[in-house]
Each structure stands twice: as C-alpha cells, then as structure tokens.
Amino acid sequence: MAWQGNPDPTGVRSISRTGDFARLPGDPLAVRQEWSDEALMTAIATRDELAFVVLYDRYAGLVYSTSLRVLADTGLAEDTAQDVFIRLWRRPQAFIAERGRFITWLVSVTRNRAVDELRARGRRQRREVPSMETGDPPQWNQLAATGDDPLAAAQVREICVRVRAALCDLPAGQKRALELAYFGGLTQQEIAARTGEPLGTIKTRIRLGMRKLRRALQDEKQED
C-alpha cells in the first residue's frame, strides 16, 4: 500500500512510460494512473489497493458493457463485473503477462464468467442474442474505459473503432455466427439448431469470420 515506486514485473512486455513515474511524487493515485495495465497488475499482486482502484476505474465500463452484452440484464451484469474484479484482486497471478495483453485476458475472463452465469441461470434457451446492429445504439464516442487516464481511454477507443470497422466488413451470416458463439455462449450445433442452417455452414461461417477479423486487425496493425 505504501509502495510508490515503479513496479518491475517479470514478463511485462512494455512499460514505455517508466520514466514518467517520478513526475508526480505528491499524488500516489495520479502516479498510478500513468502506469500500464501490466504494471498495475504487478502492483496488485503486492496488494497495492490504489493500483486496484486505478485498474477498476480504467476498465469498469468495458467489463460491465461486455457482461451486459452477454447477459442482457443490468443486475446480473453488475454481479458479473463485480465478480471479475474481485477475482482479479484476489488472484492477480492468474494473469500471465507473457501470454498476451492484459485487456485481452480481462475481456476473455469477463466473457467466460458472463457465459457461465448465462448457462447457470438457464437463460440460454429463453434468450435471443441481439445483433450489435439491432441492440442499443452504439455510443462510439463514449469510452469503454472510464478511468482518469486519458491515454488508456484513447487506446481503448481506438481499438473499438478498428474492430467496429472490421465487423462492418463481415457478411451478416458470419457476424451473426460469431456473436451467437461469443456473446450467446452457443456451440456450433446450438447455433445451427437456432438458425436452421447446416452445421457445416455454421462452422464455415465461424472460421471465415475469424479469419477475416484477424486479417482486418492485422492489416490495421501493419498500417499503424
């Protein structure tokens, strides 16, 4: 809790703003807002409560929005988001920096936890997963990351715009199959049964959809 310095975790791939940590010695919260996600997780592993506060403020909106997208219930979404952050606080070592970016890990954990909740509540059969285009109007100018760190918020917003553009290029069938699998928690057989399409068609749509999405994201990275 009293730790004010720059955490130096093993496996943290890039802390490009290490030199900035000493710039705000008087405000421990402001200092941590300059830290990367991986640096915050390392600090949380040492029970740095302020690091947890900063990480929560940075990604509470994204976690809650993902949970709400899967569960379509604000109360359940709040419970799921709370559970995700509680687990993050209690078992930070579950995140292994070498395996990928923190935000990917956080979204995956959130999605899996929400789908588990969905399955546990037996809501799968009763619920029609709405498309992203038919649900609430997207608020692209609203940040998924609602914390005080403008850099993190800008990075998340950039990713949102990029993914949204990639999804717009996907055929409707492929996008629908991906959404039913990822947000609906449905298997390929369940999607085929839900849509009345052959299983092979669903498999093809998912594979092609993932391939195109990956390619689009890679093209964006290469352009950057």
């Binding site: 509470a60 993902t66 709400l68 992203m132 608020q139 609203q142 959404e179």
Partner: peptide
C-alpha cells in the same frame, strides 16, 4: 483469443 476478445470492443459502451 485476442481476435475473439476484439468483439467485446465493438459492443455498445455503458458506464458502470
């Protein structure tokens, strides 16, 4: 997983 997780970035954003 990174590609799949990208789907979450396209969901409508809600303030917690």
């Amino acid at each position: 997983l990174q590609v799949a997780a990208a789907l979450s970035f396209a969901v409508p954003s809600h303030r917690a």
